[in-house]
Amino acid sequence: MKKVIATLIAGLFAGAAFAQTPAPATAPAAKAEAKEAKEVAKAEAKEAKQVAKAEAKETKAAASAAADVASAKADAKEKKAEAHHKAAKAKADAKHEHAAATAATPATAATPAVAAAPAKK
């Protein structure tokens, strides 16, 4: 019995001593794993940054295109209004010239109407 107790006590001491020593084989593996995790996180951050940059560029291009369309519409509206104004002015000038030409010609005496002959029966 004393041998059994002595073996158990020796096992306890051996276990305690073994638990206190660091395991040298797991330390490099942990470092490699941490380094890999860090690289993965870095790559994901870089990817997210590139995606955000591309989306910003796309949004800027869309805004620029919308501004170009709005500008083109405004220009078209302005040209249309200008053309309408020119056409109205040309009509008014033509009407004025026609009225002036009509007023400039002397009025001729009205010719009397020819009496109609009575209808034959």
Rank of each mutant, 00 (worst) to 15 (best):
V69G: 06
A109M: 13
A66I: 03
H85S: 08
E82R: 05
A104I: 12
T108K: 15
A83L: 11
T111F: 03
A62H: 07
A66H: 08
S64I: 05
A107E: 09
A66F: 06
K86Q: 14
D93Y: 05
H98L: 03
V69F: 10
H84T: 09
K73S: 10
A101G: 06
A101K: 02
K80L: 10
A88G: 07
A61V: 08
K73R: 15
V114F: 01
K91W: 09
H96F: 13
A61K: 11
T111K: 14
A90F: 01
A101M: 07
A61N: 09
A67T: 06
A104N: 11
A117D: 03
A113S: 15
A115L: 13
A76M: 10
A70P: 00
A109N: 08
E78M: 04
A90R: 04
A61S: 10
H98Q: 03
K89M: 07
K86W: 08
D75P: 00
P106T: 15
E82V: 05
A113H: 13
S64H: 12
A90M: 08
K77V: 02
K79I: 01
A116G: 14
A70K: 06
A101V: 07
H84D: 11
A115T: 15
A101C: 11
A104S: 14
H98M: 02
K77A: 11
S64T: 07
A104C: 10
K80N: 07
A107L: 12
A103C: 12
P106A: 11
A67I: 08
A88P: 00
A117M: 03
E82K: 08
K89N: 05
A70C: 12
A101Q: 05
S71R: 14
K73M: 11
T105E: 02
A115M: 08
A67Y: 04
V69M: 07
S71E: 10
H96S: 15
H96I: 15
D93S: 13
A74P: 00
D68W: 06
K79F: 02
A100I: 13
K73H: 14
A94Q: 03
D68T: 12
A63Q: 05
A116C: 14
A74K: 12
V69I: 15
V69S: 11
D75V: 02
A115E: 07
A72C: 05
A103Q: 10
A92Y: 03
P112A: 01
H85V: 07
A67E: 04
A81E: 05
H98S: 04
A90G: 01
A100S: 14
A109P: 01
A67G: 05
A87V: 10
A92V: 12
E78Y: 00
A115D: 10
A101Y: 00
A92I: 09
A66V: 05
H96C: 06
H96L: 15
A61D: 06
A74F: 03
A76G: 07
A109T: 12
A116T: 15
A99C: 12
